[in-house]
Write a protein that binds this DNA or RNA. Sequence first.
RNA 1: GCCAAAUUAGUUUAAUGGUAAAACAAGGCCCUCGUAACGCUUAGCUGUAAGUUCGAUUCUUACAUUUGGCACCA
Length: 581
Amino acid sequence: MINIKEDAKLNKLNHSCAHLLAQAVKHLYPEAKFWVGPVIEEGFYYDIDLGDKVISEEDIPLIEREMKKISKDGKRIVRHEISKEEALEMFKDDPYKIDLINRMDEENVISCYTQGDFTDLCRGPHVESVKELKHFKLLKFSGAYFKGDANNKMLQRIYGICFETEEELNNYLQELEDAKMRDHRKLGKDLGIFMTNDLVGKGLPMYLPNGYILWETLENYIKGKEKKLGYLHVLTPPLGSVELYKTSGHWDHYKDNMFPKMEVEGEEFVLRPMNCPHHMMIYANNIHSYRDLPIKIGEIARDCRFEASGALKGIERVRTFCQNDAHLFVTPEQIESEFSEVVNLILDVYKELHITNYHFELSLRDKEDKVKYYPDDEMWNKAEDTLRKVLDDLKIDYIEKIGEAAFYGPKLDVQVKPAVGNEYTLSTCQLDFCLPMKFNLTYIDKDGEKKTPVVLHRAVFGSLDRFIAYYLEETKGALPLWLSPVQINIIPVNNEYHLTYAKEIKAKLSDYRVKLDDREEKLGYKMRESVMNKIPITLIIGQKEVDELLISYRLYGKSETITTTLDEFIKLLEEKIRTKN
RNA sequence: GCCAAAUUAGUUUAAUGGUAAAACAAGGCCCUCGUAACGCUUAGCUGUAAGUUCGAUUCUUACAUUUGGCACCA
């Protein structure tokens, strides 16, 4: 997908188109006040205060028509530089612009752009004339909180995109349509991966037989990787006492996002929103020597979070999910090497699974925010510097994100973009000096003194749920052989003559997930279904194969059929499974 | 949670203020030798609850769920 923001030409075009949108809105709704209209990766938007008016579906074509009209009229776009006083006078009726102007430095040149009867405060640059803004489309609209704060008034936001040619615009719109086809919610339904049910409750996905094969295979894969690195897997309960979360600090920070506490026999419990405290208590169950560290506790652990109803999305954002979680208890000296090991594990898994479309973000605290983050500047500085050093040593590119850290420490997040919607975190590794102190965790150091270990929280698959969503979209539902619920579909050309041999072949492939389609249907009919179910390999067994003791196979996405011996075919299977293709 | 919209058969979609249609899937029958739909046939549906109306799937309201955004995301 094209990134409008990064392309200088398209950036300018879209920025100008945002002004065109504002002008059209002003024509149709003279009382409109304007906040900001930035260019984004997917085009542009404008946040507008329409008083009591809210934008509805039928308004969009009217606004578009007005934009076309203004564009046709072809006024020039003229830049003026003005003083702060002039600016304040010029926009005196628009409190949003006054807000912007008042926040500008004295030294900065204030500029505005005029096109016909419309002037907007803007840094520019813009195209020469509204005539150039021909190939645009308004894509979506919604409410959006002023300054992104839910306590503020909700403004009206309209999104759009603009290109230089009609063809580019149409191609882009087509890409949007195509993306919907690989949305994990559609694929999950079509391929029988998961379902939800109103009576069970929203945001509570249920994995169907096909989905559970995926789940199980991924779970075994990642646990195998972890075992090789010395992780110890445990099983802990999906709820815990409120006291546990008060001790960890999660209660203070997140109780509104937990399912409400329940009281039994005078004790209070919550469904657990995360597993750190349980794993802390497992660590605390023994005395540890510095010689025992690092200790790596892993678990495919079920969590429940009371996510806002508007945040729920397929199996990407749900109210119960299973983290591929682990906590590494390490000495301060081991932080760098253990953090590197985790980053390398993530990179290794991504490489094996052919995941290439991601980027790293280093999530740091906002130093001004004294409420959200555990107050210990020295600890934070040390933690943040350590992460930077490890990433630099590993020569990993990353973006720093201020104010995105967990309350207990900074984290490295791996971000990916879904087919539809905003990017999200797939993998994470977090450095934590805080929780081990809160739980009074210790180890006995060389000098016989009790010391506090450091904890690394990490999740490679984030949650299995989210990873399945991601991998469905990455593969467009055509899962690689090792993950595919049905790996091989055997179709006898004619049951009467070929079914016996087909059954023999199936028996010899008993190590794989094989389906034998022995329904009384035509070959073409069964082949179509095999392809539509995105089964990686379809075997065709007819007279030729029976006579010569061979098999013929067709790979998903290919149209040719290859005839070979069963031994050769098994070699191919093993190769595909080994390379995870 | 907030703004907007959607909800018709297992699925994808059509139609209507006078009681709902098609395709695929499912059941039955028929056909039976080479790579994306053989043919015939049967059954099945207006999210829930109110309201307006002689009559509501259609209009109104509430609720539920879903979708696009916003906010949130340990």
